Computed example of a mutant assay.
Amino acid sequence: MKMGCVGCLFLVIGIIFFAAVAGGFLFLSGNIFEAPPFDAVEWSRGDASSAQSKLYELVQRDAGQSTRQDPVLLSEREANALAAQYLAQTGHLRFEPFGIRLTQGQFTLRGRTQLGSILQGPPFAQIRPYLPAAQLARPVWISARGYVALDQGAPGKNPGTARVVVSEFSLGRQPVGTWPFSIVMGPASPKLFRWSVPGTVRDVEIEDRRIVIRTR
């Protein structure tokens, strides 16, 4: 075997060893199972219906079926209900309790789910059936802070893309960054952080206790 190949082999082994150690530290760390402070937000799952009605107005504007130009406003209650529903349907992530706080320019999300719910990507999904049920059912808190960015589309033609940009991410009381979450969630991860919006949407702004959506 050539020295170059030997070097590559040791490099691959080193990367695998580092990933195993890092992954082991992350998931064996007691900090990820410690509950952080939780600031309860009042909302109900029924608030998602009123939010969806408001979002349908954007579809009508994009199709030329509405001439309204006023901003579409989502309350903090509606944002919570809509986000909880989206995470459950798209990422199979169900939280109890769950809360999003909206402040000027950013959001803060915090919710409790089960450890097994976030082990969706390979190889975690493959080994999950062999893990003790009690471990998979252990509660784990997810905390995130970030904002929403918009890639504009063309009104009536091409949809735009809304993206969640996460600046802080923690499991329990352990800050971990976003990449471990993306790895364990696998293919579901990109869908959680971006979605299509009607091309008529001009910007999305987070204000205190509400989201403001402006159109063209």
Rank of each mutant, 00 (worst) to 15 (best):
P132E: 04
G105S: 02
V164F: 10
V176H: 01
A20S: 11
A137R: 13
A188I: 11
C8V: 14
K2C: 07
E42D: 13
L74P: 06
S170T: 07
F25I: 12
Q135H: 11
L58H: 01
L115H: 02
E207W: 00
V184I: 11
W43N: 08
I32W: 06
L102H: 00
G23V: 06
R68I: 13
G14A: 09
V166E: 08
P122F: 15
S44I: 09
A63K: 07
V140P: 00
E207A: 01
I206C: 00
P97R: 03
Y56K: 09
N80Q: 15
I183F: 05
G199A: 08
I15V: 12
K191E: 09
V12W: 07
A149S: 11
F38L: 07
K157P: 04
Y56R: 06
A188V: 13
F169Y: 09
P155Y: 07
G121E: 03
S29F: 12
Q52I: 13
F107I: 11
R94E: 11
R68N: 09
G186M: 05
A51D: 03
A125G: 02
P175K: 10
A51W: 01
T215Q: 02
E78M: 11
I15H: 02
G23N: 01
S50N: 05
A133C: 04
L28S: 08
N31M: 10
P129R: 10
H92F: 13
P155M: 12
G105H: 00
L150C: 12
D70G: 04
W195R: 10
L28V: 14
K54W: 05
G7D: 02
W43C: 01
F38K: 04
L171G: 00
C5D: 14
G105D: 00
Q89K: 14
S53P: 03
F169H: 11
I211D: 06
S44Y: 03
L102A: 00
V164L: 14
R94N: 13
D203R: 10
A83Q: 15
L136D: 04
A20E: 11
S29Y: 11
W141C: 01
Q106R: 12
I127E: 00
